[in-house]
């Protein structure tokens, strides 16, 4: 059981959701976040003073999957979120010790 986290360009969210729907995995939590990496920000000028805005809006998505589906899901995200430019984002996969569905009390793979 793994947690898949991806930080992507906000305008790619629809594509990623389509791709995940295509492989039958449309379960996501979405965060509106600000991100900063190698992508350069933009300049804003207020009253003649220039400020570098280098925290850019990003979308972070989280999803959980059983081990055997992880590769497929990660591929779907990478393929659909890619533009080939700096700022496309990253995908992280990590282990989950346990998972419980609140409604039913089902655990682990049954819960996700």
């Amino acid at each position: 059981m793994k947690k898949i986290e991806a930080v992507i360009q906000p305008f790619k969210l629809d594509d990623v959701r389509e791709a995940l729907k295509g492989i039958g995995h449309d379960r996501l939590t979405i965060y509106d976040v600000r991100g900063h990496g190698r992508q350069k920000g933009h300049k804003e000028v207020y009253r003649g003073q220039e400020y570098e805005v280098d925290l850019l809006p990003k979308v972070k998505l989280e999803s959980y999957a059983s081990d055997d589906r992880v590769d497929e899901i990660v591929n779907a995200i990478v393929e659909s979120a890619r533009t080939g430019k700096i700022g496309d984002g990253k995908v992280f996969v990590s282990d989950i010790a346990s998972a419980i569905r609140i409604r039913s009390g089902e655990t682990d793979d049954d819960a996700i």
Binding site: A6, V74, V78, R82, G84, D88, K90, V93, S94
Partner: peptide, 16 residues
């Protein structure tokens, strides 16, 4: 601090 066994850069598809 926690473990991240797998990390991928979307642009290149390569491991981080």
């Amino acid at each position: 601090v926690s473990d991240v066994p797998e990390a991928i850069q979307i642009r290149s598809g390569q491991s981080l």
